[in-house]
Simulated assay, not measured.
Amino acid sequence: MTSFGYTLMTEQSGPLELVGYARAAEDVGFDFEVMSDHFSPWLSEQGHAPYAWTTLGAVAQATSHVGLMTYVTCPTLRYHPAVVAQKAATLQILAEGRFTLGLGSGENLNEHVVGHGWPALQDRQAMLAEAIEVIRALHTGELVDHRGEYFQVDSARIWDLPDEGVELGVAVGGERAIEAFAPFADHLIGVEPDSDLVTGWNAVDGAPRIGGTARAIGQIPICWDPDEATAVAKAHEQFRWFAGGWSVNADLPTPAGFTGATQFVRPEDVADAIPCGPDLDAVVEAVSAYWKAGFTDIALVQIGDDGQDRFLSEAAGPLLEKLRAASPTGQEGAA
């Protein structure tokens, strides 16, 4: 059965608000919750960037059964992979087995802040592969010494490990990334409803099969509001950065850069790409592109901090009913 998630957007809400939304999302019936891990918002209008890992620890204690996930953490520049391994193990203990570590090769917006520059894509992917190797080794509980091309680990051991381990999802955007990461990850993370991602993953020798033990986890922005014009205006203000696509977005370094890159994006352009307004059937139609592409898990992003409470109390329940009625059954994908 397809699973539906709620996105805790650190770019548009403060930490206390996010914990409250997490609790409400669990209560209304979302299957899992994903949290972005940013140092900066994409646009200054969003106005927030709390530390994801502290907030997730609080969310783990404020909720009881909903799945949790980073979407996604970059374990190569801003964080050393040994530190990510420790954080993930601790969070899994706090979440009592509900946490999945979502990893990706990162965005310049967040990673440049530590002063190590911004590597080319091929180098970023090689760094991510080595970081996964380090994380996997440390999650065995053994003493680890590592001398690699990008990372060094000296006599490190994770002392508090969860009994169930920590499963890894990895964000992939093309054939090269799939071939590199599918054999070493537990789950696929995709940023667009592309069936080639799923079929390509399942074709890789040694990769866990999507629809079997592996999940394909996607994400889609929506902007629900009783008034369509209000929703379009909010989506344009808060989410016009989305129009550039990930090949552009990964390289922009600052919110000012995103502002400049999106200065000619019109409200109608955003409305064409993101379902806006009160029509829940339009949201279901947009989300269906993911399950038609073979994705097992789909996280919704409700755009804007103002209106989250109303979305969760008024629209989320009926929307989940419609999504579950329309989505296919028989797929494994529960968080």
Rank of each mutant, 00 (worst) to 15 (best):
residue 319 L to W: 06
residue 307 G to Y: 08
residue 174 G to P: 07
residue 23 R to G: 08
residue 301 V to Y: 10
residue 315 A to V: 10
residue 149 E to G: 12
residue 215 R to S: 00
residue 6 Y to F: 15
residue 156 A to L: 13
residue 255 P to E: 00
residue 234 K to R: 13
residue 307 G to M: 12
residue 92 Q to A: 14
residue 10 T to W: 12
residue 52 A to R: 00
residue 105 S to Q: 12
residue 5 G to K: 06
residue 85 A to C: 06
residue 50 P to D: 01
residue 149 E to L: 10
residue 334 A to N: 14
residue 292 K to D: 15
residue 290 Y to A: 04
residue 317 G to I: 00
residue 316 A to M: 09
residue 250 A to G: 09
residue 152 Q to T: 15
residue 2 T to N: 12
residue 2 T to V: 14
residue 73 T to C: 13
residue 103 L to V: 09
residue 78 R to Q: 10
residue 134 V to Y: 03
residue 68 L to R: 03
residue 75 P to H: 06
residue 41 P to D: 00
residue 74 C to S: 13
residue 235 A to W: 08
residue 327 S to N: 09
residue 85 A to G: 10
residue 302 Q to P: 01
residue 114 V to C: 01
residue 229 A to M: 06
residue 256 A to W: 14
residue 3 S to Q: 05
residue 287 V to M: 14
residue 165 G to F: 00
residue 198 V to D: 02
residue 29 G to R: 00
residue 236 H to C: 05
residue 276 C to K: 01
residue 215 R to E: 01
residue 325 A to K: 11
residue 90 T to R: 09
residue 40 S to I: 06
residue 92 Q to P: 02
residue 160 D to N: 13
residue 187 H to K: 01
residue 28 V to Q: 07
residue 255 P to F: 10
residue 213 T to Y: 01
residue 199 T to P: 03
residue 184 F to Y: 15
residue 82 A to S: 14
residue 140 T to W: 07
residue 251 D to T: 15
residue 63 T to I: 09
residue 116 H to G: 10
residue 320 L to K: 02
residue 236 H to Q: 03
residue 175 E to T: 14
residue 175 E to C: 08
residue 133 E to Y: 01
residue 259 T to D: 15
residue 28 V to G: 07
residue 154 D to M: 08
residue 295 F to Q: 02
residue 67 G to L: 04
residue 310 R to A: 11
residue 190 G to T: 02
residue 300 L to K: 00
residue 252 L to E: 11
residue 44 S to K: 13
residue 99 F to M: 08
residue 53 W to N: 02
residue 223 C to V: 01
residue 11 E to M: 05
residue 202 N to M: 04
residue 283 V to W: 02
residue 45 E to G: 07
residue 332 E to N: 13
residue 213 T to I: 13
residue 271 A to P: 01
residue 9 M to L: 11
residue 287 V to F: 05
residue 26 E to Y: 09
residue 211 G to W: 10
residue 322 K to D: 07
residue 306 D to F: 12
residue 130 E to A: 14
residue 182 A to Q: 06
